[in-house]
Amino acid sequence: MGARWPAGSRAVSDDAPGAPVLTAHRAGLVGCRSCGRVWPDGQETCNRCGADLVPPDRRGLQKVWAWWFAGLIMYVPANLFPMMRTQTFAGLQGNTEATILQGVVELIHYGNYDIAIIVFVASIIVPIAKFLSIAWLAVVAGQPATVDQAHTRLKIYEVVEFIGRWSMIDVFVVAILSALVQLGFVASIHPGPAAVSFALSVAFTMLSAQSFDPRLIWRGLPLRSRTDDKGQE
């Protein structure tokens, strides 16, 4: 070949339209998920980057589910226990404990709607949407799909992977507030047990999303379904 492909090029001169895409798996090879190098099937580590080579296989989903359940279990105390404890005037004026949801309600109460929305989205909507998306992806992975469905699933996977870390906002907020608001008698803020379980829940779901192999999305595809898929024979 040796040709230089122009930017964003999909089409290649000598290939007939509608031909199947050759995947590494189908060719009896295994592709490295870390650096993209292709090795013969059965090789266990990539000689270029040293990463473990894993064929696209539904068995990998066990790891996804394991982290998923771990994350879900930690998500329960994260919502039931207080995120932080605020003490004003040595507890005389108030000694409040707020869970995640109460924190949001408090922000709304003081009229900080924009910040309330950020916290609500980052700590409640995103984690729940993440649990649902990962579970759905893991259930449908490897099942037959059309190309459009596969593209939708890949998009969802990319969004989940991108957005997962942003749930850590609440943990950082608690950390900053507890470090900052140490005014002795006047006011002080201490972190609650939910901070730890929430951080763990976010970490576990991140690991769950990372364990998911997006190549599984494409495994169930019929081979000749897209006109601009190029290949030979």
């Binding site: 040796g2 040709a3 590494a24 060719a27 090879l29 592709g31 190098r37 190549r215 494409w218």
Partner: peptide
């Protein structure tokens, strides 16, 4: 052997290496 080939990490489609 897979020499000169590259697999997409997201969908496993194989590509020939080129400059």
């Amino acid at each position: 052997t897979g020499r000169g080939l590259m697999a997409c990490p997201r969908c496993d489609a194989m590509h020939v290496e080129a400059e």
